[in-house]
Nucleic acid binder design. Structure first.
Lengths: 166, 166
DNA sequence: TCTTAAATATGACTTTTGTCATATTTTAAT
DNA sequence: ATTAAAATATGACAAAAGTCATATTTAAGA
């Protein structure tokens, strides 16, 4: 009895990709955030970046990234220009979006809930057993996602306070 | 042109279930945690609870819960007795497990990573743009998952510091 | 010992997420 | 005008997560 270990090319390649970890973002959202941040610091209206040149530096499978870029573009989060010399870039207006806008476009709205067990009745007055372990800081985090603009992040990167290698 | 809205019984029922939210736990893990906590305060070696009596109070689809209980039992997180008067319960030893043990049994090990973008090279010295937004408190949270025992949680519940309605 | 009530094992199926490929459209440059 | 280089649209397919059902095993109690 021989055992089939890799049924397809896909399941083999998947070993090379990033591990699934629980970070409250979907993989798609993580990929999209990385792409947007990279474009924020490296592109502009007249310095566009092609999809295939974006994939490597941010470590995202190129074909998948292409699809995400299209969704982001349709959603108004990034800009693009077709044809030769075309590519993707972030306009000033694009950079005013928040990270929450990014994940909303990619995964849909209202995916964040303050309670870690997704309990409707959980709140500071009647906290669930996990509440105090994380919810206060979690709320604060969700708030930052809603408030900090891409532009603010890219300033932080340019000031060397945080780092890109993605 | 009529539009098919509900193709199957399942997709209809799914509207009644809990909404998918990004909480760094899978739905299965949330269900399992709720079950374990409920058993911790409501069961004992000689007060066993049947699967079907557990589903309602913790708000989990009964057939799905049955499967989770079996995994937890196999994984040594909860105890069970077959046959009439049988059911599930938490022994003293069971209650010494941590919540991390619960999710490890349900979803597998090593699902938690401190970086929100799952970047390997991200750390306090070279933080990614999201790092300071959440990672420090996130690390602390992951640590609690690893340290606090079920027993400690159930004490907190009994002392009225946190609440169960799940 | 028989019956019945419980967990257990197993697996079919659905939905969601992740991945890849290809044909089409747009546009710059010749 | 034609060509070539880019994004865009579309959809097929794979893997993971979630859901449900049913046959089997175990044990209590009559």
């Amino acid at each position: 009895m021989t055992k089939v270990i890799f049924k397809t090319k896909n399941s083999f390649l998947s070993l090379l990709r990033i591990k699934y970890t629980y970070t409250m973002f979907s993989n798609s959202s993580k990929y999209a955030i990385k792409a947007v941040l990279f474009l924020a610091v490296n592109s502009s209206e007249n310095h566009r970046i092609m999809g295939k040149d974006l994939a490597a530096p941010i470590n995202v499978p190129q074909a998948y990234l292409a699809k995400l870029l299209q969704e982001l573009s349709r959603g108004g989060i990034i800009s693009s220009k077709k044809g030769p010399k075309g590519g993707f870039f972030l306009s000033k207006e694009n950079a005013l979006h928040t990270l929450m806008d990014v994940v909303n476009v990619i995964d849909g709205n209202d995916k964040f809930n303050s309670c870690l067990l997704s309990l409707e009745k959980c709140n500071a007055d009647k906290p669930c057993p996990l509440h105090d372990l994380a919810s206060p800081s979690r709320s604060k985090f969700i708030q930052s996602l809603n408030q900090n603009t891409i532009d603010e992040f890219s300033t932080q990167i340019e000031q060397g306070k945080v780092f890109l290698p993605l």
